[in-house]
Deep mutational scan, measured.
Amino acid sequence: AQASVVANQLIPINTRLTLVMMRSEVVTPVGIPAEDIPALVSMQVNRAVPLGTTLMPDMVKGYA
C-alpha cells in the first residue's frame, strides 16, 4: 500500500516543514506520497495541521 505523509506534531499555520514534523504512514484517504517528504522540507503549510493529520496537496503552499 502507498504510504502518505502524516503530521508528527501540531504544525502551526505558515510553518516551514522540517523532517521531524513528518512521518510516513499507510492511511485512507491517501495524501501526499511519502517519497515526496524530501521535497516538502522548507515548504509552508497554509493551515494548522493537527498531530496525526494526513497532509493533502492543498495544505502545502507551492506543492500542488
Rank of each mutant, 00 (worst) to 15 (best):
A1P: 11
A1Q: 14
A1R: 03
A1T: 10
A1W: 08
Q2K: 07
A3I: 09
A3K: 06
A3R: 06
A3D: 08
S4P: 02
S4F: 03
S4K: 00
S4C: 04
V5D: 01
V5G: 02
V5W: 02
V6K: 04
V6D: 01
V6R: 03
V6I: 14
A7H: 01
A7T: 13
A7M: 04
A7C: 03
N8D: 12
N8M: 06
N8V: 12
N8P: 02
N8E: 07
Q9A: 12
Q9M: 14
Q9H: 08
L10C: 09
L10V: 14
L10H: 09
I11S: 00
I11L: 11
I11K: 00
I11V: 07
I11T: 02
I11W: 02
I11Y: 00
P12W: 06
I13M: 15
I13A: 11
I13Y: 14
N14C: 07
N14K: 06
N14A: 14
N14P: 00
N14G: 13
T15Q: 09
T15G: 06
T15A: 12
T15R: 06
T15E: 09
T15N: 05
T15W: 13
R16C: 06
R16I: 10
R16M: 14
L17T: 00
T18F: 04
T18I: 06
T18E: 05
L19S: 06
L19E: 04
L19N: 05
V20E: 06
V20L: 15
V20F: 15
V20C: 07
V20W: 15
M21W: 02
M21F: 06
M21G: 03
M21A: 04
M22I: 10
M22C: 03
M22E: 00
M22R: 00
R23M: 04
R23T: 06
S24P: 13
S24I: 09
S24A: 14
S24C: 05
S24L: 04
S24D: 05
E25C: 05
E25Y: 07
V26C: 05
V26N: 09
V26R: 04
V26L: 13
V26A: 09
T28G: 05
P29G: 03
P29H: 05
V30S: 09
V30D: 08
V30R: 04
V30L: 15
V30F: 14
V30M: 13
V30Y: 14
G31P: 01
G31C: 03
G31K: 00
G31H: 01
G31T: 01
G31N: 01
G31F: 02
I32S: 00
P33S: 09
P33F: 15
P33K: 12
P33T: 08
A34Y: 08
A34H: 09
A34W: 08
A34M: 11
A34E: 10
A34I: 07
E35C: 05
E35G: 08
E35Q: 13
D36K: 15
D36A: 13
D36W: 09
D36M: 12
I37D: 00
P38N: 09
P38I: 14
P38L: 10
P38C: 06
P38M: 14
A39I: 15
A39V: 08
A39T: 15
L40T: 01
L40P: 00
L40G: 00
V41G: 02
V41T: 11
V41P: 02
V41I: 14
V41A: 08
V41H: 05
V41N: 05
V41W: 11
M43Q: 07
M43W: 09
M43R: 13
M43L: 14
Q44C: 05
Q44I: 15
Q44W: 12
V45R: 00
V45A: 06
V45H: 00
V45K: 00
V45I: 07
N46V: 14
N46Q: 08
N46K: 07
N46I: 12
N46E: 07
R47I: 10
R47Y: 14
R47K: 11
R47A: 13
R47L: 09
R47P: 02
A48N: 13
A48T: 14
A48Q: 14
V49R: 03
V49F: 03
V49L: 10
V49A: 05
P50R: 11
P50K: 07
L51H: 13
L51F: 14
L51A: 14
L51P: 13
L51W: 15
L51I: 12
G52K: 04
G52P: 00
G52D: 11
T53W: 15
T53R: 08
T53K: 13
T53N: 13
T53C: 04
T54P: 08
T54K: 04
T54G: 02
T54Q: 03
T54F: 03
T54A: 11
T54C: 04
L55T: 01
L55G: 01
L55W: 01
M56F: 10
M56H: 09
P57K: 07
P57I: 05
D58H: 09
D58G: 13
D58Y: 13
M59R: 03
M59S: 07
M59E: 03
M59C: 04
V60K: 01
V60T: 02
V60R: 02
V60S: 01
K61H: 13
K61T: 13
G62W: 06
G62L: 06
G62H: 08
G62A: 08
Y63P: 03
Y63G: 04
Y63Q: 04
Y63S: 03
Y63E: 03
Y63D: 03
Y63F: 06
Y63R: 03
A64L: 11
A64P: 08
A64T: 15
